[in-house]
Design a protein around this nucleic acid. Structure first.
Length: 287
DNA sequence: AACCACTCCAACCGCACACAC
DNA sequence: TGTGTGTGCGGTTGGAGTGGT
C-alpha cells in the first residue's frame, strides 16, 4: 500500500521560497484560509506542492510566530519538557507560544544538546553520562579470554561485534529493566564477599562481574590489554544482569545457563553475539 | 584574497495516523 | 474491510553564513 508523496509531481518548485511566493501564500490564506493544503497551491497561483505551502506557512509565515533568540526561560522550558516528553517537538511547541516545533527541534539539535553534553549529561535521558566507551577495549580483551585460542583478527572482530551489542543492550535496558531501582544503584553497585564460582567460565573470574563504576581508564592504560584478574574488584555489577558471554569456540553451548532463560526474545544469550558470527559457513569463508 | 571547516536553520522526506468513502 | 486522501510529525539534508588560517 503506502501513499505516494505529494511532491512527486514534475515541475513543482522546490527549495527556498521567494518573497513573491511568500506574498502570494500569505495573501491567499489571509483571504480564504488555507482550506485543503493540496488544493491551495493551484488556487493561490503557486507552483509548489501543498505540503511545502503548509510547512512554509506553519514554520515561517504564520503571523503569530515569535522570531529571534530563545530566552533563558524558554530554554529552561524546553529542557524540562524534553526530559519528560523526549523528542515530541510538537508537544513541546504547544507550551511555547509563538515557537514552532521545527524551530525548537533545530534549537535543541544545535544548542541545547551540545550544552547538555558539555555539562556531562546524556541529552536523551538527562541523566549524568556514564562513559561506556571507556569499557569497550577491555571487553575486547575479555572476549579473547573467553576464547582460549591465541588472539587473531577474527577474535577482534568478534569482540567488536560484542561491543556493539553490549552497548545496544545497555542503551536499551539500563537501568529500568536491569533490576536496579535507580541510576544511583546502577552506577554504585554493592560489594560482594566472593565471586559466584558457578558462573565462572573455566578458570577465569566471572567475566560479567565487572562493575561499570570501575576505573576502566586505568585498567586499560596498558596498551597490550593484559588482563590482571587480581586487580578486578569484588563487586556486584549491573553487567551480571547481562546474558552470559558465550564461549565462541563452542557455539553449541550458546544457551546452556539458566540465566539465559526467561529474558524475552531480545536479550537471549545467543542474541548477544551477532548471528553471522555463529554461522559456521561465515567462519569458513574467512581468510 | 582564497580556502577550508564548521555552524545553523529552512526546507525536504518518509512514515504514521485519522478519516472518508 | 480495504483503499485513498489529508495532515502532522520527527529525522535529515543542503546551502548560506561565519570564523579561522
Amino acid at each position: 500500500m503506502g501513499r505516494s508523496p505529494c511532491c512527486d509531481e514534475n515541475g513543482l518548485k522546490k527549495g527556498p521560497w521567494t518573497p513573491e511566493e511568500d506574498q502570494k501564500l500569505v495573501h491567499y490564506i489571509q483571504k480564504h484560509g488555507h482550506g485543503s493544503w493540496r488544493a491551495l497551491p493551484k488556487l493561490a497561483g503557486l507552483n509548489r506542492c501543498g505540503k511545502s505551502c503548509r510547512l512554509r506557512w506553519t514554520n515561517y509565515l504564520r503571523p503569530d510566530i515569535k522570531r529571534g533568540k530563545f530566552s533563558p526561560e524558554e530554554e529552561q522550558t524546553i529542557l524540562n519538557l524534553h526530559s519528560i516528553l523526549g523528542n515530541k517537538w510538537s508537544a513541546i511547541a504547544t507550551h511555547l507560544s509563538g515557537r514552532t516545533d521545527n524551530e525548537i527541534k533545530n534549537y535543541w539539535n544545535t544548542h541545547l544538546k551540545k550544552k547538555l553534553i558539555q555539562m556531562g549529561f546524556d541529552p536523551m535521558t538527562h541523566q549524568p553520562r556514564t562513559d561506556f566507551t571507556a569499557a569497550l577495549p577491555h571487553l575486547l580483551a575479555l572476549a579473547n579470554l573467553v576464547d582460549h585460542r591465541p588472539p587473531t583478527w577474527l577474535d577482534s572482530l568478534k569482540a567488536e561485534a560484542a561491543k556493539l551489542q553490549f552497548l545496544q543492550y545497555f542503551l536499551q535496558s539500563a537501568p529500568s529493566n536491569t533490576g536496579f531501582e535507580s541510576i544511583d544503584s546502577f552506577l554504585n553497585p554493592q560489594p560482594l564477599s566472593s565471586y559466584p564460582i558457578e558462573q565462572n567460565i573455566g578458570n577465569q573470574p566471572p567475566l560479567l562481574e565487572l562493575p561499570m563504576s570501575y576505573d576502566y581508564q586505568s585498567l586499560l592504560s596498558n596498551e597490550n590489554l593484559n588482563y590482571d584478574e587480581s586487580k578486578l574488584p569484588l563487586m556486584e555489577s549491573p553487567i551480571s544482569t547481562l546474558p552470559p558471554l558465550i564461549d565462541m569456540s563452542n557455539p553449541g553451548d550458546a544457551c546452556s545457563t539458566s540465566s539465559c532463560e526467561g529474558r524475552g526474545n531480545s536479550t537471549s544469550a545467543t542474541s548477544f553475539w551477532p548471528e553471522f558470527l555463529l554461522d559456521d559457513s561465515f567462519m569458513n569463508e574467512l581468510p
